[in-house]
């Protein structure tokens, strides 16, 4: 559906995006994740034809953007970071203009505008002037504009930025509803958003792709060792020794007791395994020692941690890049 090959953009000597390669399948929601300034917007602007890339090419639905820009643009809907609306116009007039701009045949325009308004819940503000609408409504007008011609590819740059929590949930639901019919690429710097909305996540850092996978696989891949959390009613130090003796255990750490906790409060331990499922062995060890096993659960590595570990690369790489940027 979308193919991005060797996409690069540099401003003078400063590379904003370098050698980006990825594909998106039909009906997929692809999340673009990265800290601010990582090159997300630049990449999206190149995919939509707003910015010409320094190198590389973009293929939308089999059409190469660099060869047939107008045909590729017909197949793309785009919501920039700021919704591209004219504050002087009413929602209706604005969408009419967009419909003509997107070359929707005249007899289909009214039906498509109706449909976009329904999907974006704009029916009650259709005749109001956009400049007087709230930020949330304006964002929805922006989304309506992007989906109006029902393009196979939708590019949404931070679709939930600046919305209140309720609007964020509504917008996410709307985007989920768009998938299937459209291929959606959205950018965000909010991890939970990528995790809950996207089928696949691309993490970019300094214009380079550092990881691309499903949120679940990313989480799994980064869990080098499985970590388990145990809560035991019993002597803390003895429990630590007993658990460390269980085969397959790499490390046991005793969490400090909360200040002011009762002497007989349960001990909390974190156990790292070398691999393989050791939960039964741990449970058996605790029970056979006569202690009470209150809790035994795997610790999920959050996407936050993955993000941080990927975006804070080893310091060794930094000086070279900084020098390159300075030159």
């Amino acid at each position: 559906m979308l193919e991005v090959q060797h996409l690069s953009k540099s401003y003078g000597p400063f590379p904003a995006v370098s050698d980006l390669n990825f594909n998106a399948q039909k009906g997929e929601i692809l999340g673009f994740l990265g800290p601010n300034g990582a090159g997300k917007t630049t990449t999206m602007r190149m995919i939509t034809g707003y910015l010409p890339p320094s190198e590389g090419r973009v293929t939308v639905d089999g059409i190469v953007l660099q060869d047939q820009p107008l045909e590729a643009k017909r197949r793309t809907g785009y919501l920039p970071e700021l919704p591209p609306v004219y504050p002087e116009l009413t929602v209706e007039d604005y969408l009419r203009f967009v419909a003509r701009l997107k070359r929707i045949p005249a007899r289909e325009q009214a039906a498509k505008i109706d449909r976009a308004c329904r999907r974006c819940a704009l029916a009650d503000v259709r005749h109001r002037i956009i400049g007087r609408l709230s930020k949330g409504y304006r964002q929805r007008v922006g989304i309506a504009q992007a989906i109006l011609s029902e393009p196979p590819l939708l590019i949404l740059d931070e679709p939930t930025a600046g919305l209140d929590p309720r609007q964020i949930i509504e917008t996410r639901e709307l985007i989920r509803g768009l998938a299937g019919e459209h291929t959606v690429i959205l950018s965000t710097h909010i991890l939970s958003e990528a995790a809950t909305t996207c089928d696949r996540v691309l993490i970019i850092r300094r214009g380079r792709l550092v990881a691309a996978d499903t949120p679940a696989n990313l989480t799994h891949r980064l869990k080098k060792t499985d970590t388990l959390l145990l809560e035991i009613r019993g002597p803390a130090e003895a429990a630590r020794a007993a658990l460390a003796a269980v085969p397959g255990v790499a490390r046991v750490e005793l969490s400090a007791a909360l200040p002011g906790a009762a002497a007989d409060s349960p001990a909390r331990l974190t156990v790292e395994s070398q691999g393989g499922d050791i939960r039964e062995a741990l449970a058996r060890a605790v029970v056979s020692a006569g202690w009470g096993l209150l809790e035994l659960k795997p610790v999920e590595v959050s996407l936050e941690e993955i993000f941080l570990s990927l975006t804070d690369e080893p310091a060794a790489a930094e000086p070279a890049e900084a020098a390159a940027a300075a030159r």
Binding site: G49, Y50, Y78, E81, L82, Y86, L101, Q145
Partner: peptide, 14 residues
Amino acid sequence: RSGTMELLKTSPIH
């Protein structure tokens, strides 16, 4: 200023 240039430049219009 208002960012609508992004709409114009990404629409199928010369």
